[in-house]
């Protein structure tokens, strides 16, 4: 489903050159849940953002469902329809109600009519457990509720892949659970997911595979059992000691 080879992203600024993503090659199969972990500044978010073209990478190839993002002829908007993204800061549209947040892109990108889009939106709101909030504006929702709306908004496009960029990092601790529950349900339903997170419990429970990144490089990857119990690399060991 996703195949990246030697992806490199270089930031230049104030005379410094930072290789934020440094030659990352990875694969994600259809239906697989891959969790990317690593210390802050390790390039995991940047790598994730490369996967739907929010960051342009400088070298390498990213092939999503057979389409190469490095190819200049690729219509990135078409790829993005198939790749949903959930952000750390939710990024709901504050001037639209919950329902409009979910129907807008369906209408203008997927060209669905109003009734169909609303039906889909209500069904998804039901699924994430906030059907009663459809007429509210995002500012009246709690962080956890906003993030669940954001997930519903991404799912409304019927994506083949869902990307999560630290979806619980901006939440109050008591709201983390409700968002993780929705994500676990998605994983059970067979959605292909790439998740950047600091929730080690989630990684251990839900992930099919864990990727550990540090300083832009893919340091280690493996099943959760392997990674959390007997990591090979020294840096992964140090990291786990600090977070667990």
């Amino acid at each position: 489903m996703i195949k990246t080879s030697n992806v490199t992203k270089i930031f230049t600024g104030r005379g410094q050159i930072v290789r934020a993503v440094d030659g990352v090659s990875a694969e994600v199969a259809a239906g697989e849940v891959v969790v990317i972990i690593g210390p802050s500044g390790s390039g995991k978010s940047t790598f994730l953002r490369c996967l739907n073209g929010l960051e342009q990478f400088d070298e390498g190839h990213i092939v999503i469902d057979g389409v190469d993002l490095a190819d200049k002829k690729t219509d990135i908007n078409k790829v993005r329809r198939e790749v949903g993204m959930v952000f750390q800061q939710f990024n709901l549209f504050p001037h639209k109600t919950v329902l409009d947040n979910i129907t807008l892109a369906q209408k203008i990108v997927r060209k669905r009519d109003r009734d169909e889009a609303q039906q889909k939106a209500r069904q998804l709101l039901q699924k994430v457990g906030i059907a009663e909030k459809e007429a509210e504006y995002p500012s009246r929702l709690s962080g956890g509720q906003q993030q669940r709306v954001a997930i519903a908004r991404a799912l409304a496009m019927d994506p083949k892949i869902m990307l999560f960029d630290e979806p619980t990092s901006a939440l109050d601790p008591e709201m983390v659970g409700e968002v993780l529950d929705v994500m676990k349900q998605l994983a059970r339903e067979g959605m292909t997911m790439v998740v950047v997170t600091h929730e080690m419990g989630f990684a251990r429970e839900v992930a099919d595979r864990v990727i550990f990144m540090d300083q832009g490089k893919l340091v280690e990857e493996g099943t959760p059992e392997h990674f959390f119990t007997e990591p090979k690399e020294e840096r992964a060991k140090t990291f786990l000691k600090q977070v667990l």
């Binding site: 739907n52 929010l54 908007n77 993204m85 952000f87 990024n91 892109a105 990108v109 954001a150 908004r153």
Partner: peptide
């Protein structure tokens, strides 16, 4: 970013 990631 949110708008673009939805394919707009």
């Amino acid at each position: 970013e949110a708008a673009r990631s939805l394919g707009m």
